[in-house]
Design a protein around this nucleic acid. Structure first.
Lengths: 165, 165
DNA sequence: ATTTGCTGTGTTATATTGTAACACAGCTAA
DNA sequence: TTAGCTGTGTTACAATATAACACAGCAAAT
C-alpha cells in the first residue's frame, strides 16, 4: 500500500536506511527519466535535486538557494532555483508541499503525478503514500460530484512514530 | 456523503441556489458558534466572513483587504485582515486552501476541522466534502504507517461539471 | 565547420503573501 | 471607576515567487 516496504518507510525518520543509496538511486532515476523524455538534466537541476534528496523533510526554495550558493561559492538568485524546481516538478521528480511552501523528492517519478503525503508536524518528516489507497473513494467522489479530478493533493498532518515516543 | 444534498452542491457553480440565504445562514452559524465559545464576532471579523461567503470560490487575503478598504471607505492594513482570518480559522469558520493561498467558508463549522475540497481549475469553484468518505482508508493508513494523523488537508483539483460543458 | 535557432542561465527589479512589534482603544468584570 | 484583557491601527519588514530582458551554449541542419 505504501510506496516501499513498511520497514524502509519507517526507517526514513531514523538512521536505519542507507541514505547515500537513497540519494544516488533518486539521481539515477532522474537521469533515466530525462533521457526517456529527451530533457536535459543540467548541472543546476541535478544539484537542486540532490539537495532536495538530502533529507526526507521538505525544503524551502530559499534554503535550497542558500545551500546552493554555498556549495557553488557564488550568489545564486531566486529565478535560478525556481526554474530548476519548475523543471523538476514538471517531470514529476519532486513534489511541492503546499502547506509548508516546500519541496520534496518523489519516490516514483513518471507516474500520474498525484501528491499524497503523511507529514510529521514535529520533525517535518514527509512520507509519500500511493494514491492507489484512496482510488475507490476518489472515484466515488467523482461520480457523485460530477467533477473530473486530474490531480490529487493530499497532505495528512500529524505525528510520526519516532516523535510519538 | 457530500456536505449537503447533491442538488444543492451542484448548484453552487451555477445560479441555482439562493446565495443570499447561503450567506446569511453562514453568518447565523458563526454568531451561534461565537456565543457558544464565548468569542466576540466583531465588526471586522463579521465583515471578513461575509466577504469570504460572497462566493464559493476561495478569496485571497489581499483581495479581502481591498474589498474591505472599499466598503469601509478607508485603508485597511494586512494585519487587520490576517487577524480576522486567524480568528475565523481557529474557530473553524473558514478553511485555507493551500494550493491557492486563499480562504473559503466552512460548511459545517465546529466539527473536527479537516479540510477536504474539490477545486475546479477553471472557475475556482471549491466544493467541500465530508472527511467521513475517506475515514476507513485514512484509518488503515494510520495503522500501517504508525503516524497519528490530526489534520486532513485534501485538495482534489480538476474540472467542475459546469466547466466541463 | 558554420550557422541558426532553441533552450537554459544571469541579473535586476518587483510582485505577492504573511508577520513582528508596539502603542492605543474599548469592552468587561470587579 | 478602575484594572486588565482583548482587539485594533500602524509601521516596518520577512518570506516566497515572478517578470522581463540580455546573453550563453548546446544541437541540428546545412
Amino acid at each position: 500500500m505504501l510506496s516501499n516496504t513498511n520497514n524502509e518507510l519507517l526507517a526514513k525518520g531514523s538512521e536505519r536506511h542507507d541514505h547515500e543509496r537513497c540519494i544516488s538511486d533518486a539521481l539515477i532515476r532522474a537521469q533515466k527519466l530525462c533521457q526517456d523524455q529527451k530533457q536535459r538534466l543540467t548541472r543546476t537541476r541535478e544539484q537542486v535535486l540532490r539537495l532536495i534528496w538530502q533529507s526526507h523533510q521538505p525544503v524551502g526554495a530559499y534554503s535550497i538557494m542558500d545551500t546552493l550558493a554555498e556549495s557553488e561559492g557564488k550568489r545564486v538568485a531566486p529565478p535560478t532555483v525556481y526554474r530548476a524546481l519548475d523543471f523538476l516538478l514538471d517531470l514529476g521528480l519532486i513534489h511541492r508541499i503546499n502547506s509548508l511552501n516546500a519541496y520534496i523528492g518523489c519516490q516514483s517519478p513518471g507516474h500520474q503525478h498525484h501528491s499524497c503525503f503523511l507529514i510529521c508536524q514535529q520533525c517535518q518528516l514527509a512520507l509519500e503514500f500511493e494514491p492507489e489507497l484512496l482510488k475507490n473513494q476518489i472515484e466515488a467522489l467523482q461520480q457523485h460530484s460530477g467533477f473530473a479530478i486530474s490531480q490529487q493533493n493530499i497532505e495528512l498532518l500529524g505525528t510520526c512514530p519516532q516523535c510519538q515516543q
